Simulated scan of single mutants.
Amino acid sequence: MERFYFDHAASSPVHPEVVKVMMEIYAGAPGNASSLHSFGRSARSLVSRARERIAEAVGCSPSELVFTSGGTESDNIALFGAARAGRARGKNHIVTSAAEHHAVLDAAEALERDGFRVTFLPVDGNGRVSPADAEAAVGPETALVSVMHANNETGTIQPIAEIGEISRKRGALFHVDAVQTLGLLPIDLKRLPVDLMSFSSHKVNGPQGVGALYINKSAPFEPTFFGGSQERKRRPGTENVAGIAGFAKSIELSVNSMAEKKPFLELIRYKWVERMTDIFGRDRLAVNGHPSERLPHIVNISFIGVDTETMLMNLDMAGIAASGGSACTAGALEKSHVLRAMGLPEERIDSAVRFSFGLGNTLEELDAAAQKVATFLGRIRKNS
């Protein structure tokens, strides 16, 4: 059966050049980057070069990058590390948005149970946080503000420069989850008013299980893991040398191809919405998220009248990979907290599907996939 991968926001295919870099390391001599002998020095050199290349791509000092296991860990250690450092300075308040990734929301709720006061900012019908709401929420007791660069379910881009300036003016650290934007939006940490920023390798055609956290050299931060001196004691543990080198290569490829990649992804997204509208009808289809302030590769569509679980099951049976845009727990699909935070009607929340595009997708396969959608939608309508 022909298969179509339209779920790049969940995990993207590894670029062949990344595979090549990693396989050369796996096939080479062993080495722990913390060891003092020549094998360890070779491994450490690979990690150092990768750190330098990633730092150059995002505009920071290599020493400000901490390697992690991915976006979830980066978000967690950012929130816990900054919040606890803030509490040591008498600050016990955290501000985030109601539409964040669960890695941030669940960490914030855990900190709330630990005695922190947490403010969850609302978002508008397009999923954007209002800088005015942020300004009203951030005060002298605020240790940390955490707002994502762009939403993983809808692609809506947040006004992080404005929120960062507000945070800096009020003396609060500002954390940004940039997992979905790396390689798609320019990131220059020398210019952005950001103190901590989370990245993930497998969203940019790199390997799974690798990520990074930018920590501004002047930002107060307390480590949450202990047991080693790696990553300047901010995140101990043996470095994933091959994964880190692959991550650096994937970022290099993504950043270098950004100018040509974005227009093509915009075209893919536009054509898919156009085909779905033709098949389903303009009056029964709704696109969720901001119409212009959004990422080029993500589209969240409500197929009103067909619930999300039915749609995903039929898409999968047709060989099309997509997502409900939310976690699957014990086999039961959760309704999107993002769409609910946006205040959308239940019929749109209950029928939403996220499609996301990237490396390997073509206009030709969109047509073939759309024909399959037309076939099973006709069958669903006939049986309803």
Score class of each variant (00 low, 15 high):
residue 4 F to R: 00
residue 5 Y to D: 11
residue 10 A to D: 10
residue 15 H to V: 14
residue 16 P to G: 02
residue 19 V to E: 15
residue 20 K to C: 04
residue 22 M to C: 10
residue 23 M to E: 15
residue 24 E to I: 02
residue 29 A to Y: 07
residue 31 G to F: 00
residue 35 S to R: 14
residue 40 G to C: 04
residue 42 S to Q: 12
residue 47 V to S: 00
residue 50 A to Q: 02
residue 54 I to G: 08
residue 59 G to N: 14
residue 59 G to Q: 13
residue 61 S to G: 09
residue 71 G to S: 05
residue 73 E to A: 01
residue 81 G to H: 11
residue 84 R to Y: 11
residue 91 K to N: 05
residue 95 V to H: 05
residue 95 V to S: 03
residue 97 S to G: 09
residue 108 A to Q: 09
residue 108 A to N: 11
residue 108 A to R: 10
residue 109 E to M: 12
residue 114 D to E: 15
residue 120 F to C: 01
residue 122 P to G: 02
residue 125 G to N: 01
residue 134 A to R: 05
residue 140 P to E: 15
residue 144 L to H: 08
residue 145 V to P: 05
residue 147 V to A: 09
residue 150 A to E: 03
residue 155 G to V: 00
residue 159 P to H: 03
residue 164 G to H: 03
residue 167 S to P: 02
residue 170 R to F: 10
residue 170 R to V: 07
residue 173 L to V: 01
residue 177 D to E: 15
residue 177 D to V: 12
residue 177 D to I: 12
residue 178 A to Q: 11
residue 183 G to I: 00
residue 183 G to A: 08
residue 192 L to H: 09
residue 193 P to K: 08
residue 195 D to Y: 00
residue 196 L to D: 04
residue 207 P to H: 13
residue 220 P to F: 13
residue 223 P to Q: 08
residue 224 T to M: 14
residue 226 F to T: 14
residue 229 S to L: 11
residue 230 Q to A: 15
residue 231 E to W: 10
residue 234 R to M: 01
residue 237 G to E: 04
residue 239 E to W: 06
residue 242 A to D: 15
residue 246 G to I: 06
residue 246 G to P: 02
residue 247 F to V: 02
residue 248 A to S: 11
residue 249 K to W: 05
residue 251 I to L: 07
residue 259 A to K: 12
residue 261 K to C: 07
residue 262 K to R: 11
residue 264 F to A: 11
residue 265 L to D: 06
residue 271 K to S: 10
residue 272 W to D: 14
residue 273 V to Q: 08
residue 277 T to Q: 08
residue 283 D to N: 12
residue 283 D to G: 07
residue 294 R to V: 12
residue 296 P to D: 01
residue 304 I to D: 01
residue 308 T to L: 05
residue 311 M to C: 04
residue 311 M to N: 03
residue 312 L to A: 01
residue 317 M to G: 07
residue 319 G to I: 12
residue 322 A to K: 12
residue 325 G to I: 07
residue 326 S to C: 06
residue 334 E to R: 14
residue 341 A to I: 08
residue 343 G to E: 01
residue 344 L to V: 08
residue 346 E to S: 14
residue 352 A to Y: 08
residue 353 V to D: 13
residue 356 S to M: 01
residue 356 S to H: 03
residue 357 F to V: 05
residue 363 L to W: 00
residue 364 E to N: 06
residue 367 D to H: 03
residue 371 Q to M: 09
residue 375 T to S: 12
residue 384 S to V: 11
